[in-house]
Write a protein that binds this DNA or RNA. Sequence first.
DNA 1: ATCTCCCGCCATATG
DNA 2: CATATGGCGGGAGAT
Length: 831
Amino acid sequence: LKTPLKQAATSQLVLTERQPDCQPLTTPPKPKETPPADPWTPTSNLKMLISAASPEIRSREQRRQLSDSSSEVLQTKHCLQEHLLGDEYEKSQPSRKEKSLGLLCHKFLARYPDYPSPSQKSYICLDEVTEELHVERRRIYDIVNVLESLHMVSRLARNRYVWHGRHNLPQTLQALKKVGEENKYIQQIQMIKKREYEHEFDADGERNEEMASSFGSSEQSEMSFVELPGVEFRAASVNGRKYKSLRVMSQKFVMLFLVSTPQIVSLEVAAKILIGEDQLEDLDKSKFKTKIRRLYDIANVLSSLKLIKKVHVTEERGRKPAFKWTGPEVLPNTQDTKLEATSTTCSPPTSESIPSKEQCSKALFPSKGKQNFTRHSSLIKLVKTIENDRRKIQSAPTSPVKISASMYLFLIFLLETSFSLSQKKTKSCIKYLGLPSSHKTCRCVAEEMQMKCALSSPEAVPKPEPSQQPGLSQPLGVCPASHSSVSPVILPHPPSGVSYAIYLHPSQAHTVTTYSPGFMLQPLPCANVTGIKSNNSKVLNKITTEEGDTQRGTEEPTKSLAAEERPDTKSETSSQRCLKRSQALPENNLIKRRKSDEESLDTSSTFFPSGYLIPLTHCTHGNKAECSSKEKAGVCSLQHTAYSSPITGVIPMPASELKTVNIPAFHITPLNIMLSPNSIAAAPVLSNSCLNSSSTSSAPNPSSSALNFMLQHIGLIPAGVQVPANPVLQHVPVSSQSESISHSSGSTNVQEGKVSKNILQLDHGGLSGKYSAVPSAPKEPQEPQAVTENFFRTPGGPNTEPSLSANSDGTQRISQGTLYIPQRKLEVSED
DNA sequence: ATCTCCCGCCATATG
DNA sequence: CATATGGCGGGAGAT
């Protein structure tokens, strides 16, 4: 039976925790925007409290993002009430939920900003954490390990970790996606599914044949090492743990999401694949169970990070637990993007000192590991070479403008997407940008972009890829620019056969680019664009999104039926929206085709034998501190010249901070921008300018359109303002749902009108997450549904309604056959 | 009964 | 050797 004592203790903990919890949250030591509660409303504190206290909270993390959905508010209130009333009593249920990893993780995350300023690093002391959160150490390790796998933290020494926040996330995800693709996870998944349903009896272990082949091949060689004690990335001299299984598992798990098209992964499949990788053989039941347990642990943390969300897939076999990716869309793996970003975060292995590239490499490749050795030396060489080249290039005159433009764009993008900026900041930025002055800036940016494009790759600019959608490509003209800015250098490693990619700083990067255009040139941008249109999983997201919470049952009906959801509207800030959008970004898988070509070339990160991916980004420069600062300074200075006033004015942060922030993002910016279109918002803009122009084949002003699009997307500019994309957009009442819906269908068919609508909706809507598609639909003639094509097959055609429907129980789900899944139909439902 | 997944033993790694 | 990490699986709460 239960141990009364225990319970009591727990309850106590809970109580005590609350108070402390709140405080810290509100006033985090490091003032960052992080705090979960978005807008700092008077009630925010309460919310936090409640959330902390309430048992159900855990799942609702997502709501946070959604911020305002009415349901959410209601819930919160509800919770509030309850808790308030019960206040002291709450001991009532120390229940298991209150001790859940997810909740714990939530608390943990609340202590640190999503995007810590580079200048001030936050360190994590496990002892403190365990004490403050009142948890056993073991649990913290679970959390930290997963965070490590995402490079959100890194270990410095015993008891000591550094908090990086989400700065590295984009790179990490990109790297993971890439590896996942290399690993042919998609194939593996399909194989498993196939086998599963072909042979009912699959349970036992003989699955080798096919599996083996798939597994064994290619990357497997590298992957196989994974579980081995291989070396691990050791941040400084410290640590070098051998068993990184949880970390590795976490990465692989994430990879599965990133590569699979409906970004939904069932635990069963994940477990099988993960097991299969290490040991092709024994499919043991107990092993399977253990794997599942671990996956749940990981999933809880990832859920707290809002990267995934729990759902259920119903196949012929029955309903199976699964998770859906709700994190940021990963940029198409273009080599360019990869770069840098984290210059600031550079793995700082050792507390401060870090010096030359050599050291860097050393840090990355600990001498201990034999396997590493080989690579080590070669890597260093490569680094050197690159550096030299870089230097040369740098000396050459470069146009600062470009950089600044990129930066600027990036900044904007950052504001939107990156959740990191505090809302305040974002708001101010937006405000500022919203002014006419912003236009000017934009223009500049656009010009810049164009220039870049031209410079970077002639081919890209003029005629993107014929194969790809021509129409789209144009607008993308901007994209090329991005390439130029970011260019990863790839180092082929003959012996191992593995290639390492080194990321350069922006300044460097572009230099490099010049120097070796070949790599950069990839038409990726175009591809991306196309991809964007084509894929999109938003729909699904939306559907699921809503509920996130436990009590969804109650609310759901309402939601589904009525679009009303956001009665309160009150506080959704643009930033929030942005966040949502960003999260909602559909995955674009389109790019895959090119991959094959590129694969060899592009490597965003090095793959270690251990299986744990470590981004090399940091290494780029010799001295981490120096480097970053230098580079930053350089970049910044350039920027400042051009845009200093706007930026500074906009952002409240100190210049130094800005610099850092910008830089990292910098490379990515272009890509992101491009991608953003994927997200719903983008589509409209594109459709207007891009599509039209595309037909013509020459876009009058691609860059400007792109810019507008960006701005709109971000919310800086009101939907109609710059580019009167669609009148419709403005009034679209459709709630957040629209977002999910949005998207386009196949790469080929893009419907402008529809798209535009979606965009508008997004802006206004919100994101409540509820699915009100049906009701809302009537308003707009063109329907958003068309958008859903990817996921749903709309028999009726574009105009038909989506196949989504509410179940009797109020749960929404996709009707059978609607879900677009390559092999079979699935039903996805939230839990 | 099944799904989740907390708890904490105990092997290892680290210092 | 004392601790810090973290693999692992029993078994119990949640559904």
